[in-house]
Simulated scan of single mutants.
Amino acid sequence: MPNTNIPVITIDGPTASGKGTVAHKVADRLGFHLLDSGALYRLTALSALRRGTDLRDEHALAKVAEHLTIRFHGGHVYLGTEEVSNAIREEEVGNTASKIAALPGVRQALYGLQLSFRQTPGLVADGRDMGTVIFPGAQLKVFLTASVEARAQRRYKQLIDKGFSANMDDLLADLQSRDARDTQRAVAPLMPAEGAHILDTSQMTADEAVEQVLAWYAHP
């Protein structure tokens, strides 16, 4: 069983709200481990797409999730021995991840893996249901949000900086459909956890958001 005395900070929020960047910086400042739970779903999606798994077959997708060999190291993500940080950020993978994340069998298959990231000296967990489902007893719960327009701008810049092509109208439509899927799914819908601090980052830099999260952690 995981040690519930090990501190956990959960940072949940919609796609492109900046939670990944903020979580990474908070973990770095505190010397904590980092769990990018979204990457687990993206890794499942990437693996399923590569294997040609039927995306309507919940049992087969859960098996893919159960047998992932993954590693996070120095800001890089590995599937087996392959570095896949960029591959899991492709739009097809992200869209597939959002769809399979609605499947109870896949979520259950990844549940224990996520709990295993709780190690000393502490953990910053970033995702959709970190504070509501995976770590409901976390010392600090944050729900990061931003307007869909601000999030589309961030995603556009992210993709262009990485050398991918991007279309703003397509990104807006994609974010709106992902938001609808994430908030309306029957299992672990996207919503602020009980007692969560709400942080709207539409007009904030990542560093300003980090300072706010650290202030909340220092003075609960």
Rank of each mutant, 00 (worst) to 15 (best):
Q139H: 14
D169C: 03
T132V: 07
P7V: 06
Q108N: 13
T4A: 13
A209S: 15
A97G: 00
T15C: 13
E211P: 03
M168F: 11
Q212V: 12
E92D: 14
D179E: 12
T53K: 06
E149R: 14
F117M: 11
K25N: 06
G131C: 10
F164A: 15
R128M: 07
L46K: 09
E194R: 15
V93H: 05
R42G: 02
W216I: 03
L140S: 02
Y156N: 01
T120D: 08
D170H: 12
G94P: 06
E90S: 12
D200N: 11
R107K: 07
D54E: 09
Y111H: 14
V210L: 08
L79N: 08
T10G: 06
S202D: 08
L35G: 05
A39P: 10
A97E: 00
A27P: 09
I11C: 01
L199W: 07
A62C: 05
A188W: 03
L159F: 10
S37G: 10
K141P: 04
G131K: 09
L110W: 00
R51H: 09
I160Y: 04
L46V: 09
S177C: 09
P7F: 11
E208S: 12
G52H: 11
V77S: 06
T21C: 02
G137C: 08
P220L: 07
L79R: 03
Q212G: 00
E66L: 14
P192N: 11
I6P: 02
Y217D: 01
L79H: 14
V142K: 00
G74V: 05
Y41D: 04
H33I: 00
S17V: 05
G18I: 04
A62G: 03
A60N: 01
G80L: 07
K63A: 14
S98N: 02
T81G: 00
A23T: 08
L49G: 01
A209N: 03
